[in-house]
């Protein structure tokens, strides 16, 4: 693929002494939605942290829009046009909704504060509420809105459906799908395999820090047994309602 917006090769990433990613490689093409599936602790979040510059890999190479960003600080990667919606949203609780939206360094582009409030009307009505007062769904919308203000060409989403009611999960995925129409490429990390597969063009599956599967999303979506075997999460039982791996006891 020559038009890859993101290309990572052989990432070896550590948290201190623990070796998390053992040679992860993947690509995202322009305009593509790619989902990264995997069990809890497989290294999905670490992959996103590596390529957003938060936890740089010890070895390997990351190329974003043709730039070798392997050793770049996070803010420079963001300024290239990479939006990051972190796991758990990480809304600034001590800032109002509008203040949360004032934090991003806005690149020129279609997204402005007015535009994102149009996309998420709920946020508009709560513009002066503190971040800590928002519901989980509102926080997710705010996290996406905040990342959009960077005017990204590549959006990294870490478990946007986590802890949300089914209706809100639908809403999130409607927005994700509409991003593609704006020409934004998306790398989506999901525990919720059903939705992750539904919205994606292609899918990768991580296990113990290694890629164990890659291919078209549609193909995998049809094979529920395979999904369960690969990612440990199925289509039905582990669908929306139970998509909170960290709170569900074994």
């Amino acid at each position: 693929m020559t038009d890859a917006v993101l290309k990572i090769e052989n990432l070896q990433t550590y948290y201190g002494k623990s070796h998390i990613l053992h040679g992860v490689s993947m690509e995202v093409a322009e305009g593509e939605i790619v989902t990264l599936l995997g069990r809890n602790g497989a290294g999905k979040t670490t992959t996103l942290r590596s390529l957003s510059g938060l936890t740089p890999p010890r070895e390997g190479r990351i190329e974003i829009f043709g730039n070798d960003t392997t050793r770049w600080p996070a803010y420079r990667i963001a300024r290239l046009g990479v939006g990051y919606v972190p796991e758990g949203r990480r809304i600034f609780p001590n800032l109002t909704v509008l203040e949360n939206l004032a934090v991003p360094m806005t690149r020129p582009g279609p997204w402005t504060v007015d535009k994102v409030l149009e996309l998420f009307p709920n946020l508009g009505t709560r513009r002066d509420s503190w971040g800590r007062q928002l519901s989980g769904g509102e926080q997710e919308m705010l996290a996406i809105a905040r990342a959009l203000l960077v005017n990204p060409k590549l959006l990294l989403l870490d478990e946007p459906s986590q802890g949300l009611a089914p209706l809100l999960v639908r809403e999130v995925f409607r927005v994700v799908a509409s991003m593609r129409e704006q020409g934004i490429s998306i790398l989506l990390v999901e525990q919720n395999a059903r939705f992750g597969l539904e919205v994606a063009d292609r899918v990768y599956v991580l296990n113990d820090g290694q890629m164990i599967h890659s291919g078209p999303a549609r193909e995998l979506a049809k094979d529920e047994e395979r999904v369960r075997a690969l990612a440990g999460v199925g289509g039905k039982e582990d669908g929306v309602l139970t998509a909170k791996p960290k709170t569900s006891a074994a």
Partner: peptide, 19 residues
């Protein structure tokens, strides 16, 4: 506002393109 945001979560501030 960025200083106040950074007091609680500097990492997330950096992912939003702030030096």
């Amino acid at each position: 506002i960025r200083i106040r945001a950074g007091i609680l979560d500097l990492e997330t501030v950096s992912t939003l393109g702030v030096n």
